[in-house]
Design a protein around this nucleic acid. Structure first.
Lengths: 343, 343
DNA sequence: TTGAAAGCGCTAACAT
DNA sequence: ATGTTAGCGCTTTCAA
């Protein structure tokens, strides 16, 4: 049953009385090889059960045909959509993926970076962790000219290619929507303002307040992580405020869902007492009650675009040089959680 | 800035005036190498920025140190938990992961299998897709003695190592719980009965009915896929039944959540009119209203166990031979969606 | 259109 | 405790 010996191009060459070099060329569809020979090679390959030894090839070619992906977590709709987008593009282009997640820790992120560097990925796609304060762990990639593309959570120091949405605009739209629904005291629950995504959304929130002549009250800003426990705590803070807010702009759908549950348990009516807008357009938004108004964050598109740019770069195509910012469209999806007025 | 030339063990050897073999041994912490020499080597490695060429090593050792994982989708709590478990164990053991998903299609599953086979994974962990009818695409692995571990959705033909929960017992417990709550007409919404997980849960459901002297009515069995659209359709079927069921045992939390939403929109009170039990213990269960009674399916444990067994096998440890079934514990989590009586 | 041969970087059997 | 050397399977330059 088990035939343990691996078939190599030498076996094929011997069987066909040709040289290994010809087999190698035939397998790569080299133009100098005759149709006849190619056909014979293909047949022999099938018959003998040959499979390419990627290690030998990569050793020779000094390419790994592997792309590293670093994300903070795997457990969100948004991230899995991004991964799906990346996978689609990279698979088509013949690249493998190594996926690493940092569990929101810079330390783990640095360890992952080191690992991927030693694995010699041809390129890297990354979103930063919660507490990442510098990009030193990416320096080795730069020094070896391994291309880097960041998405979602990025450092916009002007040195990297980044794929993002216009978070400030989204924050502005979410907040303006709440204001149009008649909200006067809008709280904002978000995460580390050190991360671009959150600081930009916060900026949009403030700008919308300003443009609608509402005061910004920093007591209405709650910064916390994205866990269930933190969400419950945030909701408790909201409940304790007096006067209570009449609108919430929350930076993450899961957190929004937990907050809504906690508020409802305390007897708050949504959206009548408090209107809520989330962020991401996760599946839960349509399952909770009332259904959640949110910002559609097109993860799959982001993943595809990031991967496409990286691969073009690897192929020497694509004009994208050093600095580059790509902004993907995103829009407000209005559902019941924010409709104080109806429509 | 960029120093493009890769450092090899020869460079290190030259610098230290020792042989490449010594460097290689030093790097592997070989016992025959003196402490002093090892230290010198480590220092030179750091200084020169050497990184192992895994291709050369793998080419030499005929091992890829890579494990393939095949799943049907990435977008469920259960699957990401399993992956987290697998990753934990494999990372500790120094293995990489290649993750492939079939989008519930046997065709894609077969393509993934072929790809992973050509990538020469050292082992494979897999859960079958929705419409997989045979395991022919796994035959190449068997013929090359590449170890295989299946989990969740498996084929129990007695030829493979499988890691599962006792689905029949879980189905029995879920159904019995509904009966204890006073349900007399319990419908079961599930997926392809060709898959062990669903057929076993169905068996448990029937056995519970039988043991409690309730008739099994096949009109109360709904088989569909796990999409939102199918869930809505299933709910519509429930609404059209007369008399309506007073209990539902649903094989998946997401489906249960969508069904509950649809029923509630039609004015059904849960659990008063219809009690509901789901399956998996996904995060949504605690976010919907009423919170969902469900079966806790310990994904992380499953992943860890599957990975551990595979790796033990690869190391030549572990007594597990050919046939092997590992059953992981799992339990009912009671929440409000099923409590007709209170507690 | 094909072949010969060198070499990618590492490991391990065999020396010493 | 360390060195010599062959070879893993492939690609590619040079030659024919």
């Amino acid at each position: 049953m088990a035939n343990d010996k691996e078939v190599t191009i030498y076996d094929i060459a011997k069987k066909l009385n040709i040289s290994p070099a010809t087999v190698s060329r035939g397998l790569q569809d080299h133009p100098a090889i005759s149709k006849k020979t190619k056909k014979k090679i293909i047949e022999a390959v099938d018959k003998l059960g040959y499979r390419t030894n990627h290690f030998a090839r990569n050793l020779r070619q000094q390419e790994t045909k592997t792309i590293g992906v670093m994300v903070h977590e795997l457990n969100s709709n948004f991230i899995t959509s991004v991964l799906a987008g990346i996978e689609k593009v990279t698979t088509e282009a013949g690249y493998d993926l190594i996926i690493a997640h940092s569990s929101e820790s810079m330390k783990k992120e640095a360890a992952n970076a080191k690992n991927l560097f030693h694995k010699r990925v041809d390129g890297l796609i990354a979103s930063l962790s919660f507490d990442t304060t510098n990009l030193d762990h990416f320096a080795p990639f730069k020094s070896k000219n391994v291309p880097l593309v960041f998405f979602d959570r990025v450092e916009q120091d002007g040195h990297n290619t980044v794929v993002i949405i216009d978070n400030a605009k989204c924050g502005y739209e979410a907040t303006s929507h709440l204001i149009e629904q008649g909200c006067k005291r809008i709280a904002h629950i978000t995460s580390s303002l050190q991360r671009n995504v959150y600081s930009q959304r916060f900026k949009g929130y403030k700008d919308a307040l300003f443009d609608h002549e509402l005061p910004f009250d920093k007591k209405l800003l709650i910064v916390a992580d994205l866990s269930e426990a933190a969400a419950v705590a945030s909701a408790d803070k909201i409940l304790a405020m007096k006067p209570r807010p009449d609108g919430l702009f929350i930076t993450n759908d899961f957190v929004a869902a937990v907050v809504m549950r906690t508020l409802k348990e305390a007897g708050v009516k949504i959206p009548k007492d408090i209107a809520v807008v989330g962020f991401n357009n996760d599946a839960i938004g349509k399952l909770i009650e009332p259904q959640l108004t949110t910002i559609n964050y097109p993860g799959k598109d982001i993943g595809e675009i990031a991967a496409r740019h990286l691969i073009n770069h690897l192929k020497g195509l694509g004009t994208l040089q050093q600095t580059n910012t790509i902004i993907v469209r995103s829009d407000l999806i209005v559902r019941k959680s924010s409709l104080k007025k109806g429509r």
